[in-house]
């Protein structure tokens, strides 16, 4: 690889009040550099008005996702060397979400859909009762465990073409959350979960193309979680329980 001392970085600028337009910066290249480092360099050294979002910088908080060369990625853990196109990168706000400003997407619709998918805990006991023991090797627990490392980054939501075509669609992360709770021995309202994911925009809108699973930076598998919900709702329809 030829020695490079600069990268050509194009960032999308704009928001609800100004149409999006690309702006290009020359950014110093280093051996080890993430996309988030590059964006931060621009904000700190070239243009302090550039808006973006991050918090943990170690892939825990899910706040730094952006489109990088057209692909949704967690920018704090995406090395520039992995995504360089020639000597250039293009960074934009996450797809399928409204833009607040520049690289910061509005996550409200994403989180509202978690609630709409009943992605919240329905307790089996009150705080005054003993904590219920959990069997870690039960098949249901394994199913639930598969999805709990989700960091709510919305990469899957941005990757999903069904979200793009159908604004009602709850999306992979919210539905995976519903599946996790459905399999949680400590969740008391499975019927409410199945009702929520059977409504308009629920799991039956998924086309099983698997972009969510292909792009999830934590290597989770929302596609299979959604298939589980489809099976569970069909079983309930025929009068069976899981």
């Amino acid at each position: 690889m030829p020695e490079r001392d600069h990268l050509t970085v194009t960032v999308q600028r704009g928001g609800p009040d100004a149409p999006m337009r690309p702006q290009t910066f020359e950014v110093p290249a280093y051996d080890n550099q993430t996309v988030l480092d590059v964006v931060s360099w621009i904000q700190q050294n070239a243009d302090p008005t550039l808006t973006y979002r991050f918090a943990c910088r170690v892939g825990m908080c899910g706040s730094c996702a952006m489109m990088v060369n057209g692909v949704p990625r967690w920018t704090c853990r995406t090395h520039v060397s992995k995504v360089l196109d020639g000597n250039a990168i293009e960074v934009g706000p996450l797809r399928n979400l409204p833009v607040i400003k520049d690289l910061a997407a509005d996550m409200d619709p994403f989180f509202d859909k978690w609630v709409a998918a009943e992605g919240r805990h329905h307790p089996t006991r009150s705080r005054d009762e003993e904590i219920a023991p959990i069997d870690p090797i039960a098949a249901e627990r394994q199913e639930a465990n598969a999805g709990i490392e989700c960091i709510n980054c919305s990469v899957c939501y941005s990757a999903c073409d069904t979200v793009a075509g159908n604004p009602d669609y709850l999306g992979p992360a919210a539905l995976q959350r519903a599946w996790t709770l459905y399999n949680d021995a400590k969740d008391a309202d499975r019927d409410a979960i199945l009702d929520a994911v059977s409504a308009k925009g629920g799991c039956h809108s998924c086309h099983s193309m698997g972009s969510c699973t292909a792009y999830c930076p934590n290597e989770l598998d929302p596609l299979s979680a959604i298939a589980g919900l489809k099976r569970a709702t069909a079983k309930r329809f025929f009068g069976g329980r899981k």
């Binding site: 059977s198 409504a199 308009k200 629920g202 039956h204 489809k230 709702t233 069909a234």
Partner: peptide
């Protein structure tokens, strides 16, 4: 008819 019923009708 709900989305779910349409889904089932299409599968059946």
């Amino acid at each position: 008819m709900s989305e779910f019923h349409l889904y089932m009708a299409q599968r059946l």
